[in-house]
Structures are given as structure tokens and as C-alpha cells.
């Protein structure tokens, strides 16, 4: 897997990370090394093997549709850096 600067930039953007020039170079170097190593996976024969998403073989864990009290709004907002009129405040979200 060839890691390019463009790939690093697009992945960083998807992850909402701003990388400065040094961090970009470090990310390029680290990802290249790690992916070189991870590429060993491609040699593994996994034909017919089902992907495993969960460690436990559990199924159908459900709850009844019974309401329970919610939190007080002030507790919901307790850790918010900025709030107004019971709401979280964020920069203007564009359409």
C-alpha cells in the first residue's frame, strides 16, 4: 500500500484533524510503516471466513419500551463549553 500526501490529507480531513507540515510528514512515515506491516494480512487465506464483529456470540439483546426519567437539562449541559437557553452552542452550521 503506497501512502501518499493526498491520502494523508483526505484521511485527516475526514477525521477532522489539522496537521501541520511536520505532523503530515510524521503521519506519512508512520502510516507507511504501519501499513507495510499490516499488509501481511493480505497473505492470509481467509476464503470462506465470515467477518467477526463481536467477541461474544450474543443475539437479540433487547429492552422493553418502558420510559425512565431523563436527566435534568442542566446536567446534560453541565460540561458544555458554551450554552444558551438550555441548548448547546456551536458555530453556525451551514446548509
Amino acid at each position: 500500500m503506497k501512502v501518499t500526501r493526498e491520502l494523508v490529507d483526505s484521511v485527516a480531513h475526514l477525521a477532522r484533524l489539522d496537521l501541520d507540515a511536520a505532523e503530515r510528514e510524521a503521519a506519512l512515515r508512520d502510516l507507511t510503516r504501519i501499513l507495510d506491516y499490516v499488509d501481511a494480512l493480505s497473505a492470509l487465506d481467509t476464503d470462506g471466513v465470515q467477518p467477526m464483529s463481536h467477541a461474544l456470540r450474543l443475539q437479540n439483546v433487547l429492552r422493553a419500551d418502558e420510559p425512565a426519567p431523563s436527566m435534568a437539562a442542566q446536567d446534560v449541559l453541565q460540561n458544555a463549553p458554551e450554552r444558551k437557553d438550555g441548548c448547546f452552542l456551536a458555530p453556525r452550521a451551514v446548509e
Binding site: 446534560v76 444558551k84 437557553d85 438550555g86 441548548c87 448547546f88 452552542l89 456551536a90 458555530p91 453556525r92 452550521a93
Partner: peptide, 13 residues
């Protein structure tokens, strides 16, 4: 909801 006073977005969950 857009808050015209602060020109910011208010979020209600």
C-alpha cells in the same frame, strides 16, 4: 436552530 443574536447554532438533543 439558528440564533440570530449570536449568529450561532443552538443544538437541542
Amino acid at each position: 436552530v439558528h440564533d440570530p443574536w449570536t449568529d450561532r447554532t443552538m443544538a437541542d438533543y
